[in-house]
């Protein structure tokens, strides 16, 4: 290898590093700033808008949001709603996706096309009818109501994704299992599911994130602070009697930091969760 090629490669690598470094600053700076502002005192926050070092380090804002504003309840609500949605949606949609692939080979294609159409329904289109339906069912201001709504948005998309994953399972394996006397559901649970586990996990994570971040329906369908989700709680803080940026920064930090940690652990799975199944 001659000098020139080596130099070129070296330059290329330096270029790559520079580029991702610039991007990383762009991507991560808001989080850093969030942290800095959350530990500043409120006078400092307003007096020194560009200072990176707090005059005095304080956890008062955190104390305020967790103890006085009871953010913990809303974290729990968000977790409950998102986890139930993910769990139920995963069960329903993996059953349906497998059913479509195995038992409706001809109809299947059309079914999954119809399902993906539901993905393009803007949330805003259905919010009034949902309000009416939930009102009639008496499910407004309940976490169950929110779970149902989130299911309706997540299940069709999840089915569509999972159909792609199930298609990759060779039928021969199942037949072998069936000859061994396993029933359909048994085959499904013991043989098929483990094979699509990675796809299942990334679909589930995708749904979880959707439910965790949802705003519009939670805004319209829940009213009690003991029921509502984190997003709405943060939204309410913005309109409070006293505009306290320090509190808001601390509250955001409490929400964002666990997500960042969670995301960095599950990276492997999210990679491709959105499209992998569908193009297989």
């Amino acid at each position: 290898m001659n000098m020139l090629t080596r130099l070129k490669r070296r330059m290329g690598e330096i270029g790559c590093y520079t580029y991702v470094t610039v991007l990383a600053v762009f991507a991560a700076f808001p989080l850093l700033w969030l942290f800095i502002c959350s530990v500043k005192e409120s006078g400092d926050l307003l007096a020194n808008p560009t200072s990176m070092i707090p005059q005095k380090f304080t956890l008062a804002n955190y104390h305020n949001v967790m103890v006085n504003l009871g953010l913990g309840t809303n974290i729990r609500n968000s977790l409950m709603v998102s986890l139930s949605t993910t769990l139920i949606a995963t069960v329903i949609s993996s059953l349906a996706a497998y059913g479509i692939v195995r038992f409706f080979p001809k109809l299947g294609n059309m079914m999954s096309k119809l399902l993906i159409m539901t993905y393009m329904f803007p949330a805003i289109v259905l919010v009034i009818p949902y309000a009416v339906v939930m009102g009639k069912l008496g499910l407004t201001n309940t976490r169950l109501g929110l779970v149902l709504v989130y299911l309706s948005f997540n299940v069709p998309y999840a089915v569509w994704l999972l159909v792609g994953f199930f298609k990759t399972v060779p039928i021969g394996i199942e037949e072998a299992a069936r000859i061994d006397g396993a029933g359909r559901l048994q085959t499904f649970v013991r043989v098929v599911l483990p094979l699509v586990a990675p796809g299942l996990v990334s679909t589930a994570i995708y749904m979880f994130i959707n439910a965790w971040n949802e705003f519009l329906y939670a805004l319209i369908l829940t009213s009690s602070s003991s029921i509502t989700t984190l997003s709405i709680k943060l939204h309410t803080m913005q309109g409070a009697d006293v505009l306290n940026w320090g509190d808001m920064m601390a509250a955001c930090m409490v929400v964002v930091l666990p997500s960042v940690v969670f995301f960095s652990f599950i990276q492997k799975y999210i990679a491709g969760g959105m499209t992998e199944g569908a193009v297989k």
Binding site: M80, S84, L139, N141, T142, R143, L144, V147, S224, S226, I227
Partner: peptide, 9 residues
């Protein structure tokens, strides 16, 4: 899920 919300609300 519902049971819990009901007792609270």
């Amino acid at each position: 899920c519902r049971g819990e919300t009901e007792t609270e609300t």
